[in-house]
Design a protein around this nucleic acid. Structure first.
Length: 362
DNA sequence: AAGATTTGACCGGG
DNA sequence: CCCGGTCAAATCTT
C-alpha cells in the first residue's frame, strides 16, 4: 500500500521526465525553462525519496508496536482529502503567493452554477453515459427498444468557464494540459463560431462514474486562446484505496512551462513534508473539479499513478522510455540538487537520436 | 485487443 | 424547428 504511494511519486517523476524529453526540442533555446523543468523533476524525485524514507520509518514503527494503528491512522488521514486542486487553481494559488503573472492568460473564471453541487448523485442515478446501463435497452432479445437512447441534459450543475492560452509553440491545436485525462466524445460546429467545439469527458467515467466533463472551444478572435468550460466534478480519485497524487508545484509548473514562458522558482516542494502534501492539506482544501484540457493526441498528463483520474490507467505508453528515464533520473540524483550540473551537451547530443520521436511537436 | 477519436445521427430544450 | 449536447458505430492508434 505505502509502497504504492511511493511508486506513484516515482512515476510522477518519470512522467515529468518523459514530458521534458518530449518537449526538449522546443526547449533547446530556452535554457532557463529547461533548467526549471529539471528542478521540477528533481523535486519530484526528491519527494519520492522522502516518501520512501517515510515508509521505512513507519515500517520500523509498525514493527516495534505490533498494533499497527499508527500506520493505519496515517493512511486514513492521507486518504481523507476531498478533491485535489485542479492544476489551474493550483497555479493561481501558487502564483498568487509568488506575486507573479497568472499561469495562463486567464482572463476570467466564472461560475455559473445554479447552486447545486450534486454532480455525483444525479449522475449516478441517471447513468450518464447512457450506453452502458439502460434499463430500457436490456430487452432480452438484445435488441434496443423503441426509445433508443436515454440522454440526460440539464442538471449539470456548476459550469466553470475559463480561458486558456494555447501554446504558441508546438501543436497549437492541442489545448494546454491539466492534471486530468479526458476522452473526447464529440465535436460540433457551433453557430457563430469559426472553430468547432470539442466535448470531453473524464477518461475514468466508466470506472468511477466520474461525471466531470469539459468543452473546449477556440476563440474566433484569438485562435491561440481556448475557452474551456468544465462541468461536473471529478469523483474518480475518491477511491479509498489509492488517492491520486497531484504533486502541486511540480506538475502544475511543468504543464505551465509548456504553455507559457516564464521564469520562476517554484516553492520547493521538497521542503513540504511529504505526508502533508500527500494528504492534500498542503493544497488548502477541496477543489472544484477540474481544469485543463484534453488532447486529441491522447497525451494526457497523468499525475500520480494510483487512484483516480490521475491515475490507475496511465494511458501513457508505459514501457517506452522507462530505461532512459531511469538513467536520466539516476544521473540527476547523483548530480545533486541543482539541475545546473547537467550539461546541455549531455542532453542534446549524446541522446539526440531519441528526440526524433516528437513528430507531433511543432 | 483495448482504448481513443471521428463523425453523422439522435435527442431535448428553447 | 433550430441548435447544442450526446450517443455510438466506424475507424484509428497503441
Amino acid at each position: 500500500m505505502e509502497e504504492r504511494m511511493t511508486s506513484q511519486l516515482f512515476q510522477h517523476g518519470f512522467k515529468l521526465v518523459r514530458e521534458l524529453e518530449a518537449n526538449l526540442p522546443n526547449l533547446a533555446d530556452q535554457p532557463n525553462v529547461l533548467s526549471k523543468s529539471c528542478d521540477e523533476i528533481l523535486n519530484a524525485f526528491r519527494s519520492a525519496k522522502e516518501g520512501l524514507n517515510l515508509h521505512m520509518m513507519f515500517r520500523q514503527q509498525q514493527e516495534s508496536d505490533q498494533t499497527g494503528t499508527s500506520l493505519e491512522g496515517w493512511r486514513r488521514s492521507t486518504s481523507n482529502y476531498t478533491q485535489p486542486k485542479p492544476i489551474m487553481e493550483l497555479l493561481q494559488m501558487q502564483l498568487q503567493a509568488d506575486h507573479r503573472s497568472p499561469p495562463f492568460s486567464r482572463s476570467d473564471v466564472l461560475f455559473a452554477g445554479e447552486g447545486g453541487r450534486e454532480a455525483e448523485g444525479s449522475a449516478r442515478s441517471k447513468s450518464i453515459g447512457g450506453g452502458e446501463l439502460h434499463p430500457m435497452d436490456v430487452s432480452d432479445s438484445g435488441v434496443v427498444s423503441s426509445s433508443q437512447r436515454q440522454r440526460r441534459r440539464k442538471d449539470d450543475g456548476e459550469r466553470r468557464t475559463i480561458t486558456v492560452a494555447a501554446p504558441r509553440i508546438g501543436n497549437t491545436d492541442i489545448p494546454p494540459e491539466d492534471g486530468y485525462t479526458w476522452r473526447k466524445y464529440g465535436q460540433k460546429e457551433i453557430l457563430g463560431s469559426k472553430f468547432p467545439r470539442g466535448y470531453y469527458r473524464c477518461t475514468h467515467q466508466r470506472l468511477y462514474h466520474c461525471p466531470a466533463k469539459k468543452q473546449v472551444q477556440r476563440l474566433d478572435d484569438d485562435p491561440y486562446t481556448f475557452e474551456v468550460t468544465y462541468r461536473g466534478e471529478h469523483t474518480c480519485h475518491m477511491s479509498s484505496t489509492a488517492p491520486s497524487i497531484p504533486p502541486p508545484a511540480a506538475a502544475a509548473d511543468i504543464t505551465h512551462e509548456m504553455t507559457q514562458i516564464r521564469t520562476t522558482q517554484p516553492p520547493p516542494s521538497s521542503s513540504v513534508p511529504i505526508s502533508s502534501w500527500l494528504s492534500m492539506e498542503y493544497l488548502g482544501m477541496r477543489g472544484g473539479g477540474s481544469s485543463g484540457s484534453a488532447s486529441s493526441s491522447g497525451s494526457g498528463i497523468v499525475l500520480g499513478g494510483g487512484g483516480g483520474c490521475a491515475g490507475p490507467s496511465a494511458p501513457r505508453t508505459g514501457k517506452d522510455a522507462e530505461f532512459p528515464v531511469a538513467d536520466m533520473a539516476d544521473v540527476m540524483f547523483n548530480s545533486g540538487s541543482s539541475s545546473s550540473n547537467i550539461s546541455m551537451d549531455f542532453l542534446f547530443h549524446s541522446t539526440d537520436d531519441k528526440w526524433e520521436t516528437g513528430d507531433k511537436q511543432i
